[in-house]
């Protein structure tokens, strides 16, 4: 099949970017979306043009590195699917496909389709951990965790940190990402000690990074490759309120 591509090209962080048109013949419907981009790059290299830079690594939907906005949707037309797991059979012959980077104030574009998501790292380093040093851990079975809690914690912990939630949020809010980690650690018994500080510090860092407010449109859940529930955001709000309240009582 044949595709008309409109791809965002931007030299570096400071440069002004623009959409550039490309035509790609012989696209195989079994190709993954990223393999289609590989094919385009191969063609660009043959023509001595600069290939398109895009984020990708594991190509099996778990590392969270890939992610572009395809025809106005983060990770493309399929819901709950990473860009690398999207295949060209989802597109029609002769279709025009518009490819842009994830956009948000918290995610500056580095080059072409690559964005800087280090804000997520800083949110985690503000408190998204259990302060246990190597060697301090007690015997694993000394902390029973009910099946339901373990499963719920997993549901939150499954986040791959791709940033589609931010890209798809009209407010550029990182609430889903931040809340997933806060929730995972708020419900597990082994991470209760820092529960209040964790919530307050991570949320403060999230704000500092310039992410917007969550206005509960719930779009993030639909585009999230792991289908992380928006109820994590509710839980984050609860943790924030609880921590803010208990802080004064101290």
């Amino acid at each position: 099949m044949k595709l008309h591509l409109k791809i965002w090209r931007q030299k570096n962080r400071k440069a002004q970017g623009k959409l550039v048109n490309y035509t790609l013949e012989n696209v195989n419907p079994h190709m993954s979306f990223l393999e289609m981009l590989d094919t385009l790059n191969e063609q660009l290299i043959q023509n001595k043009e600069e290939p398109v830079e895009f984020d990708h690594d594991c190509r099996e939907g778990i590392c969270g590195q890939c992610g572009v906005v395809i025809n106005g949707n983060a990770h493309g037309p399929l819901e709950n699917t990473t860009t690398c797991q999207l295949h060209m059979r989802e597109f029609k012959d002769g279709e025009t496909v518009l490819i842009e980077p994830f956009r948000a104030k918290g995610f500056p574009v580095k080059k072409d389709l690559k964005v800087d998501r280090s804000a997520f790292d800083r949110i985690i380093s503000a408190g998204g951990y259990v302060s246990v040093n190597t060697g301090q851990a007690p015997e694993a079975n000394s902390i029973p965790v009910s099946h339901a809690i373990a499963e719920a914690a997993f549901d939150s912990a499954a986040c791959i940190g791709c940033g589609a939630c931010v890209a798809t949020c009209k407010n550029g809010s990182a609430a889903l990402f931040t809340s997933a980690k806060i929730t995972q650690l708020a419900i597990l018994p082994q991470s209760q000690e820092e529960r209040k500080e964790r919530a307050l510090n991570m949320i403060a860092q999230m704000d500092k990074e310039g992410f917007g407010h969550c206005s509960n449109t719930e779009a993030c859940e639909v585009e999230c490759p792991q289908g992380i529930s928006v109820l994590n955001i509710a839980r984050m709000n609860y943790e924030y309120n609880r921590a803010s309240f208990l802080k004064f009582k101290k």
Binding site: Y129, V130, Q136, A137, A150
Partner: peptide, 13 residues
């Protein structure tokens, strides 16, 4: 296993 559990790794239960 002890270390991972203490870190909050949600192993199957």
């Amino acid at each position: 296993i002890d270390q991972a559990v203490a870190q909050g790794v949600p192993f199957g239960r």
